[in-house]
Structures are given as C-alpha cells and as structure tokens.
Write a protein that binds this DNA or RNA. Structure first.
Length: 870
RNA sequence: GGGGGAUUAGCUCAGCUGGCUAGAGCGUUUGGCUGGCAGCCAAAAGGUCAUCGGUUCGACUCCGAUAUUCUCCA
C-alpha cells in the first residue's frame, strides 16, 4: 500500500465513524509558553482538554506533522543511528471530546488495523496500564476487559507508569494508555524469542505503532489527581512506522516516504546507501533532517540563535556535519534536496511547494555559514592540539571551542582520535552541565494552581469596540520567574485588553475596584486560548466587579501601526511583486517592524514608492471594514491573504482598508486618516531571502519630523543660515582637506628646519652622538624627528622633552646597533628619568616614551640624560 | 532569557603580558615588463583600531556601558 493511500484510508475510516477531518496544525507553536513545536497530534486540541474551548465536533480525525528533538524516546543525537526514530514525523489520530471512550476506541483501532490495513492479528500485542500504588491509581481494568474479548490474553502486557500513563506536563489532564505493538521479525527470529519479551525493549522490529490515551484525570500543582467531569480519547499512530509494516520492509527509511529522498542524496553526493554503516547513518540523518527543516521553514520558522529557530538550526547543522564528515561534502548540498522533497510531498502539504524558493535559499545560506564556522574551528582546533602536552586534550578547551565558536564536539573527538589523541570528556560534560544549570536557573518559572473565583460564562475579548468595561475575575494564579519576579495572572469574564498576538503587543492599563483601589495591568497575553492579565499585586477583594480600563493613548498608537502594517504589506506586493509574503511582524506602540520574503535589497526609489503608496492610502481616508466572523473559504475567495504557519479556525476575522484584505485578529484605526503619516526608518536583511522594514506612524512620525527639522535648523544656524547647507558642508570638507594637507607640508618643513638646527647641536661623547633637548613638538612629531635623525646618524642617543597640556613627555631614541653594543635600553632610560617628572614609561630598546605630571622636572631629566652615555 | 566570543585598510585577518613609526595577504590605482596557468616587477593610495565613558603620565591593548554580529544553553 502506498503511503498516500495509508494516510487516506485512515482518515476515510474515521470519517465513516462520524469524525470530522481537520487539517494539520502548523508545526511551530505560537501561543503556548511550555512548547515550541507540535510534538504530538493532541497539541492543537489542548485547549479542549483543558476546558478552555469547545471543539467544532466531538469526534475529530487528522494527520499532524510533528517535531520531536528531545524526550524519553527521542534525542536528536540518536536520530539516524537506528531505522525508526525521526525528528519530524506524521501522527495519525482520532479524537473524542467527551464523546465515546475506551470501548469504541479499542474496537475501531482493531478493526482498522486488521480489516482495512489487513495486518495479521497474530503479530499484534497490546499493553495495558498496571496501576501505581504510590499514587493510588488502579489497574486499567476496563481496557483490560475490552482487550480480552479481542485478543488472546498472552498477548496482553502490563505496562508501568512510564510507558502506559500519559501526562501533558507537571499539571493538567492525564490518564492511562493502551498501546498496540507489532512484531515484524522473521519466523525464525520469532521462534527463538517470543515477541512478548521484546515489547517496549527498543527492538527495531518490535515496535509500538498506536497509542490510545484515555484522558480521565486532572493533575494538580501539588501532584494529586482528580477525576475529570468529561472523559476524552486521544490516539496517535506513527505514520512512517505504519507504512513500514504495510509495505513489508524492515526500516522506516525503506518505505516510499523516504526512498525518493535517499535516491536523490545518493545521486548528489555520489554515495551508495546500504553498504557502509557510517554512510548509512549519514544518509538517514540527512533524509530525516531535510524534512524537519523544510517543513519548519515553510511554517515560517527560520533558523536562528534563540528559541525555536535555534532548534531548527541545530537540526540543519547536524545534517551538514554528517554530510561533511561521512559523505565528504565540503560544499552546500542539502538545499539541492528541496526539489525532490517538494515533488514528493507538495501535494499533501502545499506550503512546501509555494515556499520552495525560500526554503532553498535559507538552507543554502545556513550551509555556507556553518561551513565557514567549521573552517574556523578546524584552525582553532589545530592550535589547541599544538598547545597540548601529553595525549589528553583539555575538556575545557574543547568546550570553549564548542560553546564560543560552535564547533561540534563529536567532530573534535573524531579529529583528535585520528591524531592519536583523546579528549577529556568528563571535563567537557562538567562544563556543559554548568552552562545548562546557569540557563535553567535564569529562566525558571513556577506557577501555582488556578484559584477559581466565579463560574461565569467567559465572553472573551470585547476590545474591538470597548476600551473599558465592567468585569469580574473568574480565576487567578501566582507565577514566579527569576526575570519578572512574582506576578499574578488574572482571567476575566470579558476583557477590553488585547492579548499579545499576531505580532501586536499586549495592552496595558488598570483594574479599578468600587472602593477606588487601582491595580495596574502590565501586560496581556494569551495562553491556551485564555486571555491572561499580568498584575504585580492582587486586589484586596477579588470577588467584586472591577472597571477594566485600557491605556487608550498607547492603544491608539499601536492601532495606527497595525493598520499601517497592512497598507505596507499591500504596497510591497504592489510595487515589488506578489512573491512578497509576510514572514514576521511586530507591532509596538512606538514603531512597527515587518519581515517579508524578497530576493534582493529594496532600492531606495522602491522604498520611496512604497512609502508614497501607503501615504496615498492614508490621505484617501479609507474607512475600516471589519468582518468579525466570516467563513474562512469566503475570506480567501474575497482575496484575503492567509499566512503560512498560522492556525485559522473555520470562521475568521477579515480586516479591510479598501483593497487591502487581511485575516487578522489585531486592533485597528477606524479610518486610515488616523494613521496621520507613514515613514520608513530602515530596511535591511534578516536572513537569506528575507528583508525587514522598520517604520513609524502618527505621533512617532511627528516627533521624527520635528527632530529632523530641528537638527536641520541647527546645522543651518551653525552655517550662518547658508542657502544651500549641503553645498556649504561639502565646501568646508574640501577646504578642510586642503588645509590638512597644507599643515602637513608646513609641519614637515618645520621639522626639517628644526632637524637642521638640532643636527648642529649633536655632540659626540665617548663615540656616541648625543643630544638631550626640550623641543616644541607633539609626540608624533618627536617620533618622526627621532627616526629621521636616526637614519642620518649612527650611534645616536636622543632624549627629547616636551610639555603638552600641562603634562611632561620624554622620548628616548637609541640607534639599534648602539643599544645592542652598549647594552642600553631606551625603556629603562625613560623609566629612570621618569621620576623627575613624576611619571613612568617604557618601550622597546630603541625607542621609548614616558609621561609625567610635573613639567618642572623636564630640565633636570634632560640634564641627567648624559649620565647614560658616560 | 542566561553565558562566552568578535568588531583593526574595500575583503580575510595578525597585532601575546599597556609605550612597537598600526601590519600581512587579496583587491584598487599608477608606472614598467610580458603571447597563457590568479602573469611579473616597482610604487602609491587607503585606518576617528565599532561608539561612548573610565583607569593611567600614556589605551588598538585594561575596565564599564551601548550597538552590531557569531556561538552555546534554556
């Protein structure tokens, strides 16, 4: 069965069981602080399990693109070494939200596997949660009984809390799970050891394919469990593994999900998959990682050095590293695989197709920069090796190479090994651990349980129409972090406060109780579909009605920036072309930032055109057309631009200003005229193929122009109100250059004259040409003079003194030969004489200077100089 | 968010412990030679040593802040 059919059959099967098919959520997560990437099929439904939202249907099915780089069964460093772990994978799932439970979930899973996919019943095993006394959770008897009716008891295995009890995190919904495993070993192998022995033993051919989770508890902050009012089913089946079973191969990488990619890698690198284990690992690593990276970029996540971007960079660099070391690829090659990947998966995931150019560019650029890092690291490592005494290279040094210069540690180890050296790995680990602890401590957040204040219906955000409202606190909790200290998160029954999202920052303002107490709201965010208000202290009485007031001046400025962002987007597409796509946006109170795909620098004329375009729309006074809830399809058909990597519901909000239509949740001005004026401040690159524009509007633009005008007036005033200041300045510059040259000439002449005079004053003492004299030159002049005299006289000993800004300066020149011969050292001379001018100095044997704060002592110092040549 | 680096000529970099005439290679310009493979030879131009502040008689060098950038960790 082709992988495409495997996917379709799954979705069709559950559709026939009254499930609604939904599309995969983006792999990159935006409004959940505990998670960077979708790492399981359930992520996009988390809010439903938490009770913060209602699903559109109680039964849902989908295939979800997931990314896992850490966790109990997957560590990035392990991917590729075996045949069944991946960073990116697809998870097929079916869901029940308070609808059916264990009975149906188990029966349908069995039906699909054995009747649709026609997997031999005799190679399947199932696991059931054994219970945990310490936590007072009983055996999952219900699941056990259900399985007993379907499968012989000797193929049911009890699993412990680690394997068969699923938790989302330290807190929240959880419950027992039941896994289905499959044994695809040869008959011979099966005869030797029973598959039962190998379940959950990390055997590559006895693997878990489906996990059925029965969510029935809620874990509280103190660790205790309470029963949930509604029970849910959450299942996940690994798509790649399922394909392996159905295509009768022994490795995920031998399924048609991977073979086209592997063939392409063989072609590009001139290697063969299957002969050499190191090559095999490298090929698998690359085949796996290119998928993860390409999908992430398509979802809008570029490689970077913080957060999610850093994870993507690490994955990509790992692939480059394996290619570099084991496939001997010293030039960018991974970007060349994007075409093949797109051909293969572009149909199921159209974002790959439309983002293909960008994906290629970004990967190529990243490859180039990492190859440079490797080059630099090789040089540094060479140096470390040279400095190493004995056979063991310091772990601290290796850590520095890794931490500061980004040179991969396994490459260090490999190179050292080739040179017959070894690495102090313990020391390295110690350093790494230290660094990890530092980071962890700095970003630790502890949160308490939610305190429920009142159970009123949550009406959510009302801030499009209101900037203040009468509200009630529904719940609150305390959170503590090193950075922000102690804060309270408050949820209201309705709120005018806009939560940070869609690039727009969260509103600020205050809550006021009837007795006049004001609590200021420092920020507003969204977490799992709840709007959270951050306050420094709780009001005295949380149960009363409050007046919630948004800081309207800030909100107005932010709205102007947001609306201007839409017009900017429209203008860029109009003037640069429709390849321009939003790649990031930041709407703040005092400025806006817009990142977009574009292949080259935006010329200043183009910027001007864009600016003019936006300002033309502003002066047209176009009113806002705000359609709050229209069907997604309708919005798209009316020309709205949907962003890749955004999760949209069935109904969306469309924001129009004339021709500009965007799907947007942010706050806007009622009329473009309110933006007042739009001014681009800067344009630059953020990554390969991505440009960034920063701009200001309204008050900020006014302030900007005022400032510019003032600065201009000042310049003009300084130039005595010159008619053409630019010309006046360039005249000055020219004149200045001319004068500089003349001064140089004059100084040279002066020095020449001085030199002539001084030449006559040089006296011979003991065969040494000696002169000690006070001169009127600066340090540089003295230096030039000294060296010029040095060229003309052999055996020269010079000591010059001068006074500069009330400070004394001594400078001593001794011909190199003379210094050697008589064992003289100019540095010592000036240091010694420095005591007369209350200072010190030094230099090298033939030239040295000293300074001091007592010019009175200069004469004495000059008189004593003769002692050195006597 | 936390840590560690880097910022010196148009480019790639050297300049170790404060005093070194601030350098190299490539590139540029000029002149000369030359039938090739980065042609050869000679000369020149090009630097507020990222910015601001501090320590010091003296800072490219030490300290602090800022900016930009690389990198590791979360």
């Amino acid at each position: 069965m082709k992988s495409k059919d495997v996917r379709n059959n799954f979705l069709e099967f559950f559709k026939n069981k009254s499930h609604t098919i939904v599309s995969s959520a983006p792999m990159v997560i935006k409004d959940d602080p505990t998670l960077m990437f979708t790492n399981a099929g359930m992520n996009q439904f988390k809010e439903y399990f938490l009770g913060n939202g209602t699903p559109k249907s109680p039964r849902i099915t989908d295939t979800q693109k997931c990314l896992r780089v850490s966790g109990k069964h997957n560590d990035l460093e392990e991917v590729g070494k075996d045949t069944y772990h991946h960073t990116m994978f697809e998870m097929l799932g079916n869901w029940s939200f308070g609808d059916y439970f264990k009975k149906e979930a188990i029966a349908w899973a069995w039906e699909l596997l054995t009747e649709v996919y026609k997997i031999d019943k005799d190679i399947l095993y199932v696991t059931v949660f054994e219970g945990n006394e310490a936590e007072g959770i009983p055996v999952d008897q219900e699941a056990l009984n259900l399985w007993k009716e379907i499968i012989p008891e000797d193929r049911i295995i009890f699993g412990n809390k680690k394997d068969n009890f699923w938790e989302m995190g330290d807190q929240g919904p959880c419950g027992p799970s039941s896994e289905i495993h499959v044994d695809i070993r040869s008959a011979e192998e099966k005869a030797k050891v029973s598959g039962r022995e190998l379940v959950n033993q990390d055997h590559p051919l006895v693997v878990e394919i489906w996990n059925l989770v029965f969510i029935q508890f809620n874990r509280k902050a103190d660790g205790s469990l309470e029963k949930l009012p509604q029970q849910h089913v959450d299942t996940g089946m690994g798509f790649e593994r399922l394909c392996m079973v159905l295509q009768d191969v022994k490795s995920n990488y031998d399924t048609d999900v991977f073979t086209p990619l592997i063939k392409e890698i063989e072609k590009i690198t001139g290697t063969t998959y299957g002969n050499d284990e190191q090559v095999n690992i490298a090929v698998r690593v690359i085949a796996d990682h290119i998928r993860a990276v390409a999908f992430a970029i398509a979802d809008g996540q570029l490689p970077g050095n913080t957060g999610a971007g850093y994870v993507i960079r690490r994955i990509l660099r790992r692939a480059i590293r394996y290619g570099f070391t084991f496939l001997n690829q010293k030039e960018p090659f991974i970007s060349k695989l994007v075409g093949s990947l797109t051909d293969q998966m572009g149909e199921a995931f159209p974002e790959l197709k439309s983002q293909r150019n960008l994906i290629e560019n970004v990967i190529r650029e990243e490859e180039n920069s990492f190859l440079r890092t490797l080059d630099q690291g090789l040089v540094l490592l060479d140096q470390i090796v040279k400095e190493t005494e004995g056979k063991t290279v310091s772990g601290k040094k290796a850590f520095e190479l890794y931490d500061t210069y980004g040179f991969p540690i396994d490459l260090t180890a490999l190179i050292l090994e080739e040179q017959g050296l070894n690495l102090d790995e313990k020391e390295f680990e110690k350093e790494l651990q230290k660094q990890k602890n530092r980071s962890r401590n700095a970003s630790k957040v502890t949160s308490g349980d939610w305190e429920i204040v009142s159970e009123v219906e949550n009406k959510g955000f009302i801030g499009y129409d209101h900037l203040d409202a009468e509200v009630k606190i529904t719940r609150y909790r305390k959170v503590e972090s090193k950075k922000e200290g102690e804060l309270y998160q408050i949820v209201l029954d309705q709120t005018p406060f806009y939560p940070e999202g869609g690039g727009q920052i969260g509103d600020k303002g205050f809550l006021q109780s009837p007795d006049g107490e004001k609590v200021s709201v420092v920020d507003t965010r969204k977490e799992n579909n709840l709007i959270i208000h951050l306050v420094k202290k709780l009001p005295k009485d949380v149960s009363v009605f409050f007046k919630a007031v948004v800081n309207s001046t800030e909100r107005t400025k932010t709205a102007a920036n947001h609306s201007a962002t839409h017009l900017l987007h429209q203008g860029l597409r109009k003037i640069l072309g429709t390849h321009v796509e939003q790649k990031g946006s930041m709407v703040q109170t005092d400025y806006l930032r817009f990142d977009f795909s574009h292949f080259s620098k935006v010329a200043s004329e183009e910027l001007k055109e864009v600016e003019d375009f936006v300002n033309a729309r502003i002066s047209e006074n176009i009113p806002l057309v705000d359609r709050r809830a229209i069907p997604y399809q309708e919005a798209i058909e009316s020309g709205a631009i949907a962003l890749f990597g955004e999760k949209y519901g069935d109904t969306v909000r469309a924001v129009n200003f004339g021709e500009s239509t965007e799907l947007c949740g942010g706050t806007h001005v009622a009329n473009t005229g309110d933006i007042w004026y739009f001014k681009i401040i800067s344009e630059g690159a953020v990554a390969a193929g991505i440009r960034r524009i920063e701009a200001i509007t309204s008050d900020a633009a006014k302030a900007y122009f005022t400032e510019q005008a003032e600065a201009y007036q000042e310049v003009k005033a300084v130039l005595k109100n010159a008619k053409d200041p630019v010309k006046a300045i360039s005249n000055l510059q020219e004149e200045n250059n001319e004068l500089k040259k003349q001064i140089e000439v004059l100084l040279r002449e002066k020095a020449k004259n001085l030199k002539g005079d001084l030449k006559n004053e040089i006296q011979e003492i003991n065969g040494i040409n000696f002169l000690a004299k006070k001169v009127d030159l600066d340090a540089g002049g003295i230096r030039d003079l000294s060296f010029q005299l040095g060229d003309e006289f052999d055996n020269l000993f010079l000591l010059f003194g001068t006074e500069q800004n009330g400070k004394a300066l001594l400078s001593c020149f001794i011909s190199k030969d003379l210094a050697k011969e008589k064992d003289l050292h100019a540095g010592k001379v000036v240091k010694d004489l420095g005591k007369y001018i209350q200072g010190g100095g030094g230099g090298q044997p033939f030239y040295a200077t000293a300074g001091g704060r007592n010019p009175e002592g200069l004469n004495e110092a000059l008189q004593k100089a003769i002692e050195f040549v006597k």
